[in-house]
Design a protein around this nucleic acid. Structure first.
Length: 576
RNA sequence: GAGCCUGUAGCACAGUGGAUAGGGCAACGGCCUUCUAAGCCGUAGGUCGGGGGUUCGAAUCCCUCCAGGCUCGCCA
């Protein structure tokens, strides 16, 4: 149980009100608007009816009713305006949490709560032969952050990049490559080369409609196992994966499975047969559909009137396969909200097919990225490539680094950590459902609530620790004494300590809500609190007996910032 | 037309039943002979889209209207 929950239970055990359980009390506890008021508050308004007393009197009476032994567990218990405010001894809290963090280090916040449970997460899910653009960022980064937090809490996370690696576009690419392609150029230029011949195909097809027939024929050949077609297709796929791997690496994004549409191509028939046998399907306008009008949804189309399968068919097959292979506890789809209906439909079909695990399927939607002049469109050529954004961010970091810290070595490596961090942090800052209007000004902002701010805070902390000239592993082996802890007898330290205590709760909150931005914002709060502490309290030249406690607080800040950023896929430079 | 989502300061956002609605950017004014100023402090900026309701208490829940976005059987 987290420290916060333990503290709530301690409070609940001190309060007794007729017909109200300890758990109820614990659930009613809130955080006061200011830490000065206390750590937890019990609003007494709703007891007024049962107890037939005013909330003010109830709070006063409850405060009186607490036994001396129980009162000693707190620094103060004060009734104010109908609230009963509890404050724990801040130095005692500091002692415990610092001991835990310094012992566990990056393992602080880890748990085994997810042991034995597998979570499939479908994210990024790119199309072969197309470059990563800014619109791919959300799915990739949100999915990756959830993946890492699940692992931190002991789950067996399975990262799945459901590749868009099948379809008539490969017929077009094969025809285009046979007509105008050059293998050496393809291997050199990679995805941009594929984009180029793909665009050329569309241009030429305007005047030569027969190209489209050729493309269809080429795709048919691919499906039928034609060696030449398969060879080209394999090269296209390999080159795309090699190209995007560079970006995934720099973003610290990992996948355990790359099974995409091609993989599920031969796994749809049994699913369709099963749905047919269950009498869930019917023929409508020559298409095979599952009618969902009882659930106020349009039908889920499984087979088109021309005999081809669809996205939904493949997703159903993929769901069956994932349950069979991984026996998941949950299966997440980090996919834009445009597909809300699609997922509602396939989850409903699974439910109708009697799959109890249909309830474990979760669509994690996020907002769309558009440009200031409207939606992105590959055809119009107004796409922002992810690589370009990252490169620009790194370059900007390098310029700032050169001007602010000209003496540093390895500037390129440091700038990469800062620049990439800025982009990722930006993408994880807001609630995922919010739409984003892309702007270089905003994504390349390095002041205020940004990755560079947090990274800089960590660098400050690290610098202090370095200047201590001690072996940190040995320096903190003995527990802090009460006299040493007095170095933390100030508002700034108390705020940091209370934030540290929340870290485990923040991680479970991220998973409960599938919302990495909760962690992003938390890290900002920690950085802000440390900067205030750092400004108001000397560490290196503090009175001797205060040094070790303040250094411990600094070290703990460093540990939590590093671990928090790592879970978001962001590096922490040692200097900047 | 229907369904879902969003609407909080000039801008982009946090807060989703509790105390005086919070941070950031932009603006203005301060703080570097002391641990990294990518920092810190202060000032200014609000009909929480409008209206009605529920509640001791509503930005938060319900109803309704307005604005914007997404989706609505053979794309993914």
């Amino acid at each position: 149980m987290s420290i916060n929950n333990k503290k709530k239970q301690i409070i609940a055990s001190c309060i007794s009100i007729d017909s109200i359980t300890n758990d109820d009390i614990s659930d009613l506890l809130i955080s006061p608007p200011s830490q000065d008021l206390g750590d937890f508050a019990l609003p007494c308004f709703r007891f007024a009816k049962i107890l037939k007393k005013s909330p003010l009197a109830i709070a006063e009476d409850l405060a009186q009713s607490i036994s001396e032994a129980n009162k000693n567990k707190f620094a103060s218990i004060i009734a104010v305006n109908g609230y009963l405010n509890f404050k724990f001894n801040p130095l005692e809290s500091a002692k415990q949490i610092l001991a835990e963090i310094l012992e566990k280090k990056s393992g602080f916040g880890s748990s085994t709560i997810g042991a034995g449970k597998t979570i499939c997460i479908d994210y990024s899910s790119i199309n072969i032969a197309k470059p990563l653009h800014i619109g791919h960022l959300s799915s990739t980064i949100i999915g990756s952050a959830l993946y890492k937090v699940y692992k931190k809490l002991g789950y067996n996370a399975v990262g799945i990049n459901h590749l868009g690696d099948w379809g008539t576009q490969f017929g077009k690419l094969i025809v285009a490559f046979d007509l105008w392609g050059n293998m050496a150029a393809l291997k050199k230029e990679q995805i941009p080369y594929l984009s180029k011949i793909y665009v050329k195909f569309h241009e030429e097809a305007q005047n030569q409609p027969e190209l489209n027939d050729q493309a269809r024929a080429a795709f048919k050949k691919l499906e039928d196992g034609d060696l030449h077609a398969i060879e080209l297709y394999s090269v296209f796929k390999k080159i795309t994966l090699q190209d995007v791997a560079k970006i995934y690496k720099i973003l610290h994004v990992h996948f355990d499975s790359l099974n995409g549409e091609a993989f599920f191509n031969d796994k749809m028939t049994p699913v369709i047969d099963e749905l047919n046998n269950l009498k869930l399907t019917e023929i409508s306008d020559d298409a095979l559909v599952v009618r969902l009008s009882d659930y106020d949804m349009p039908p889920c189309i499984l087979i088109r009137s021309d005999g081809a399968t669809l996205y939904a068919t493949r997703d159903l097959a993929a769901a069956y396969y994932r349950k069979e292979k991984y026996d998941f506890h949950k299966c997440l789809y980090v996919v834009a909200y445009q597909q809300n209906l699609h997922f509602k439909q396939i989850f409903k079909v699974l439910e109708l097919a009697g799959k109890k695990w249909a309830k474990d399927m979760v669509h994690v939607p996020f907002g769309m990225v558009s440009l200031e002049d409207g939606a992105m469109s590959t055809r119009k050529g107004n796409v922002i490539l992810l690589k370009d954004v990252i490169d620009k961010s790194i370059e900007k970091s390098l310029v700032i680094l050169k001007s602010k810290s000209p003496k540093l070595k390895n500037k390129r490596s440091l700038a990469t950590k800062i620049g990439v961090g800025a982009v990722v942090f930006f993408a994880l800052s807001n609630n995922r459902i919010k739409d984003i209007i892309f702007s270089y000004d905003k994504i390349l902002s390095f002041d205020g609530e940004t990755a560079p701010y947090v990274q800089y805070t960590n660098v400050r902390a690290l610098s202090v620790l370095k200047n201590m000239n001690v072996d940190l592993n040995k320096y903190f082996t003995n527990h802090l004494t009460d006299d040493e802890l007095k170095g933390l007898d100030n508002k700034e330290s108390a705020l940091l300590v209370s934030l540290f205590e929340k870290f485990p709760d923040i991680l479970s909150d991220v998973l409960d809500k599938y919302e990495p931005s909760i962690l992003t914002r938390y890290i900002i709060d920690v950085a802000k609190a440390f900067n205030k502490f750092y400004l108001e309290n000397r560490i290196l030249n503090a009175p001797d007996e205060f040094k070790r406690s303040r250094a411990a607080l600094t070290y703990a800040t460093h540990i939590i910032i590093c671990e928090g950023l790592k879970l978001l896929g962001i590096d922490t430079p040692e200097e900047m």
